[in-house]
Write a protein that binds this DNA or RNA. Sequence first.
DNA 1: TACTGTTTTTGAACACGTTCAACTGAACAT
DNA 2: ATGTTCAGTTGAACGTGTTCAAAAACAGTA
Lengths: 218, 218
Amino acid sequence: MRQQRSAETRVKILEAALDLFRERGFPESTMREIAARSGVATGLAYYYFASKDAIVLEYYQRALEDLGPLLEPAQQHKKLEDRLNAILEAKFQYFEPNRRFLGALMSNAADPASPLSPFSEPSRPIREFDFAQFQRALDETGVSIPKDLAPHMAKILWMYQMGILLFWIYDRSEGQSRSRQLVKRSLGMVVLLLKLSNLPLLKPARKTVLDLVGILEG
Amino acid sequence: MRQQRSAETRVKILEAALDLFRERGFPESTMREIAARSGVATGLAYYYFASKDAIVLEYYQRALEDLGPLLEPAQQHKKLEDRLNAILEAKFQYFEPNRRFLGALMSNAADPASPLSPFSEPSRPIREFDFAQFQRALDETGVSIPKDLAPHMAKILWMYQMGILLFWIYDRSEGQSRSRQLVKRSLGMVVLLLKLSNLPLLKPARKTVLDLVGILEG
DNA sequence: TACTGTTTTTGAACACGTTCAACTGAACAT
DNA sequence: ATGTTCAGTTGAACGTGTTCAAAAACAGTA
């Protein structure tokens, strides 16, 4: 009974926060307002969430879980390009109502020491959950990938996705049409490169890319 | 005389700030401390600088100006690859003492609406000042660039540089050796691609890249 | 010198994210 | 029933970046 009530309070705060973020934007929403709208004291928000940022992080985590089933139709396409396109489109649509405040997740995106960064240790579970979608797309479409590249390919696609999402978040064009164009133009290239990478002639190039990935990961 | 004193106060505050940033780091330094160390009241720092961030931005601006002459030796190399390498190396060395707090400039790097972002309107002069170095390197090394690509090439190299600097800023390896490795491995590839781009066979690929650049710029 | 207008300087005040010592009350033990 | 415990909850307080009305210093003019 105790846990029940506690869990309810938690989501009450979470949802009040997300409502406010959607209405006013992330920086414009204060913790005091969030608490007030949830009918609790300011401090209680901090009992349930480590920080204001952590609320967004938790939203993002839950969102990815929700997204699992929603991506099922996307994962039915036979061609890798179509799958990736469908995955990206599904994410665009799912996140659209909250696009504005998702930028909060990118505030310190580049700093791997910041807990909010997609590359940080705390967000590892979320990240790996997301990897799995791309791994599955690669496995099930049966594209042939050189042995040396194979273990890193899902990660590379994930990075590509993060770049696209980053652009999408700050995309001011009507209906984020520019992001769609970006996907249209770049996705073909990514898949083409992946196919070309099988050519024996390109082994040295592959080696270079692998070295780069190695350095970037540390 | 009035202006003289005023200008002196300004640099007094700027230097006290930079000292503190170097000693304690950017987030750990408070505006009150900066003012105290400069021997002025808290509010005065805001008379001269719009915000705490703006102090870093001003430092970066002045730094790029200082850097002009320092890049002269780098701009003597005959081969493009050597020049770019020397330019990057010079920046590494120049910024090294302040590497830690330059991350403040990247806090909202991705958001073009944030004044601090390298892509923002307020930082346009700084950015274009920086472009010029790359344009010069391209011009003076006489690499042949396809007509359609030529107007964008300096910008593309600048973006490459920003990526490298971003990595360098957060590079925790001893003496930022990993950043050096990254340059070593990636620079050759960049220059190779630039040379390959002249092949008539690759005209469609070039078209795609140009489309991408167009979309990214808006 | 005294008056006027402008630039510089002050420090208190504001709103924010966050912390914390104290309080409440339901669950359980005696 | 009474006492004990502790997750849940409170709101004042802290330190921060930033703003602002007022004071002070200055330059020019009479």
